Computed example of a mutant assay.
Amino acid sequence: MVDKTDAKTAMEELSMMLIYLSHFTERDTMADPNSKYAWKGYDFDVLNLLDEKDYIRQGSHRSKSMYITKEGEAKAKELMEKYNVVDW
């Protein structure tokens, strides 16, 4: 039997996975092609929590995208393993 996950934890974990799965890279010649970004279309409280945990960096509140940190990428991959989701 699988342990139940409370709604708050599920929102945080599932948002982190979706942020990672929907990421893109900047195509600018000055940008690092390994840097991963995602659009900020998620619950603000969840984004703030993920930012506090250093999984993402939101930048200014006016920016429409966020940066996924190496810690965030590792966490997303760990969660994908937990939820049995295959990476691209």
Rank of each mutant, 00 (worst) to 15 (best):
M11E: 12
E12R: 11
E12G: 01
L14M: 13
L14D: 11
S15M: 03
M16F: 01
M16I: 09
M16W: 02
M16V: 03
L18M: 13
L18I: 07
I19M: 09
I19C: 03
I19P: 02
I19Y: 09
L21I: 04
L21S: 14
L21N: 15
S22K: 13
H23W: 04
H23S: 13
H23C: 05
F24V: 01
F24L: 02
F24W: 03
T25N: 13
E26F: 05
D28T: 04
T29S: 12
M30H: 11
M30A: 07
A31I: 01
D32K: 08
P33W: 03
N34L: 07
S35F: 06
S35W: 04
K36L: 15
K36D: 00
Y37D: 05
Y37T: 03
Y37M: 05
A38G: 07
A38Q: 07
A38E: 05
A38T: 12
W39C: 01
K40S: 03
K40I: 03
K40C: 07
G41I: 10
G41M: 08
G41R: 05
G41H: 06
G41P: 01
G41V: 08
G41Q: 07
G41A: 05
Y42S: 02
Y42M: 06
D43V: 09
F44K: 10
D45Q: 13
D45F: 10
D45I: 09
D45M: 12
V46E: 00
V46Q: 03
N48I: 06
N48P: 00
N48Q: 12
L49D: 08
L50V: 08
L50K: 10
D51C: 06
D51R: 11
E52S: 14
E52M: 05
K53V: 02
D54N: 14
D54R: 14
D54L: 06
D54Y: 10
Y55W: 15
Y55K: 08
Y55I: 03
I56S: 02
I56T: 12
I56G: 04
R57C: 06
R57S: 11
R57T: 10
Q58D: 04
Q58I: 15
G59N: 11
S60F: 08
S60L: 10
S60E: 14
H61D: 15
R62A: 09
R62C: 01
K64V: 08
K64W: 04
K64Y: 07
S65Q: 13
M66V: 13
M66F: 05
Y67D: 02
Y67I: 10
I68C: 05
T69R: 06
T69A: 09
T69N: 07
